[in-house]
Design a protein around this nucleic acid. Structure first.
Lengths: 161, 161
DNA sequence: GTCCATGCAAATGATTTGCAGTATC
DNA sequence: GATACTGCAAATCATTTGCATGGAC
């Protein structure tokens, strides 16, 4: 649990910098998201993880904290159409308009990998010229079959999200 | 309401071809989606539209029909993160793996425009080479500001979804 | 000490489901 | 005529909210 990600002190500093009151609950939620930055956690999962260190926390607080962190652009919301919203820590890109992560979703095992790339720079330009729509951000989901599943969609394997 | 899209007969033929029992409710749901192909309707909106022609229909039937049409790949689900799932008639591309529509979402007026394009052909190749992930489909959302809103995100205007 | 944040329980709201009646094939 | 589909009402379940208490500054 304490293997990687930001320390409590670093997380507290971020909250303070954003003008937020620093509470144990907020620190732990953000620290958990930071430690699990490759995991796309649901609110319920965050709740369970934080409870390990601080069993008194309520689920409603987790939801309220998530809401707050979203508004501050500290975290991103992802929707994998399985009935849960999922969250991951933001990219902290300096200055520029916020960019979401992009995701590779394996249709066989359900695994989700993130990747970071300004894939669509040329496209945004093209769209703007042809439609007048000015693109400020994009979100991309790629569906297919991961290496471990062998690129073959016909077999079955276990699910990890 | 009867302006464009498929006729009842055409819709009935599609259902029959898929091996489904042809009922008034199914015909009207699919016909409505076809008539509003540029509108990204919610289940509730479909319900209201079908009720005009067939007031006895129940909301549960609309949901069950949508589910069915999704499984048959006749329609696509889109999520604009506003708490509703939205639906649009599929692209009917012959043979090939299914491709979602892509969407331009105006952050100012909320308008959503669709566009169809194999934007990411090169990228899919690149990803496959570097990660072993075989991409079979992609979904892209572009956020920004539409022509009518003047590409300036600071003003306000009415919302149409 | 003030005011905001929290925990609990109750409310909300989109979507799903059970069941008895009804329509399609 | 058998079976699958429908409508209604009740159930579900993620998320939100009201309110009294507790904690951060």
């Amino acid at each position: 649990m304490d293997r990687k990600g930001l320390s409590k002190e670093e997380v507290a500093a971020i909250l303070k910098e954003k003008g937020l009151k620093v509470t144990i609950q907020r620190v732990l939620v953000l620290k958990t998201l930071s430690a699990c930055e490759d995991q796309h956690l649901t609110a319920e999962e965050i709740y369970e993880l934080v409870k390990v260190e601080y069993p008194e926390i309520g689920l409603a607080t987790v939801y309220r904290t998530i809401q707050l962190l979203l508004e501050l652009n500290l975290i991103d919301r992802i929707n994998l159409d399985d009935g849960f919203a999922r969250y991951e820590i933001g990219t902290f890109n300096k200055g520029k308009a916020r960019h979401h992560h992009h995701h590779l979703i394996c249709l066989k095992c359900g695994k989700v990998a993130s990747f970071e790339d300004d894939l669509l720079e040329g496209l945004e330009q093209k769209i703007q010229e042809s439609t007048g729509f000015v693109v400020s951000d994009h979100e991309v989901k790629l569906y297919g079959c991961c290496k471990e599943c062998g690129g073959n969609l016909l077999e079955k394997c276990s699910t990890t999200k």
